[in-house]
Design a binder for these strands. Structure first.
Lengths: 154, 154
DNA sequence: TATATACCCATTGACGCCCATATATTCCCA
DNA sequence: TGGGAATATATGGGCGTCAATGGGTATATA
């Protein structure tokens, strides 16, 4: 499986370390399994993460923008300076930077939610509530969209 | 990681030395880790920096501008003639020239912002504000552009 | 000689690496 | 197919190394 799926809740130890779920580690390319990138989710109080390959792809695209435009600066500032890389130790653990923990209200436990090509890290309670809210919105408000997804052969 | 990523705030000591963040040093090619180039950012009151190798890329970008335009002269003058090289000592520290510190209002602390293939050095407060402004512009005004970067599978 | 810069050494705290353990999962074989 | 062994995962902790920082001294350059 090369997608981040399912949900896991892991503990943060005294040193601030937390295990990246094993199934998530296996999604990372064997070459780059010792590093991931983390950044603040734009829409929710959570942290998003993925392998470094995704970042390199974004870098390539930004590099194609007009070098002297304001857009170029806005993107590179918002993306590169807000992203942090963090190393994964031999046991599969990593450190969540303090600023990101604050942003997501994470203290002693971290809830990992697979999101396909990336994953989210939530304070467990908030993550649970977000899941319920998402599902409710999907059921109540997006029938047409849902049909589009389910009526076709996929 | 071969990109300048994330943000760091380091102190400037009595002698004017400041540590280039370790992760930035590692972006520089092993051959040329004892020298970087610095120049005034054209669009913001900040200093931009990168490895010496990046000079060729900058030259190429400028060369792609209309040769007979005023911009061409302006850019090549503003950038090339203002570039300074500075040495990195064995502890990974370097000196920011006085003129550049003035330009960026930097006094006792320097905020390093990763920008992919280069980095910026800001007075911490101003850098923080710039980040917020960039993000706001990106969220409010550039939806289509943003989608180009983020909506596709990468 | 005066000022600036490079080199060397020291300190502190953070982080990476190693080892250990408990629980869970998989595997193997009778 | 059941049970026990081997393996993997999540977690805890010791300790060495490195990064950031401070300061003394040598060297250089004018």
């Amino acid at each position: 499986m090369d997608l981040f799926v399912s949900k896991y809740i892991n503990k943060i130890d005294k040193k601030g370390r937390v295990s990246l779920p094993s199934s998530f580690r296996n999604v990372l390319p064997k070459a780059n399994r010792s590093e991931i990138i983390l950044y603040k989710s734009i829409k929710t109080p959570s942290i998003e993460g993925c392998g470094v390959g995704r970042l390199k792809e974004i870098a390539k695209r930004i590099n194609n923008l007009d070098f002297f435009s304001e857009d170029y600066d806005d993107f590179s500032t918002s993306i590169f300076s807000e992203i942090v890389t963090t190393n994964i130790d031999k046991e599969g653990r990593f450190l969540i930077p303090e600023e990101l923990k604050l942003y997501a209200s994470i203290k002693t436990e971290a809830a990992f939610f697979g999101q396909g090509h990336y994953f989210q890290i939530w304070e467990p309670q908030k993550g649970q509530k977000n899941t319920e809210d998402s599902r409710r919105r999907l059921l109540n408000e997006k029938k047409s969209l849902r049909m589009m997804l389910t009526q076709q052969k996929i």
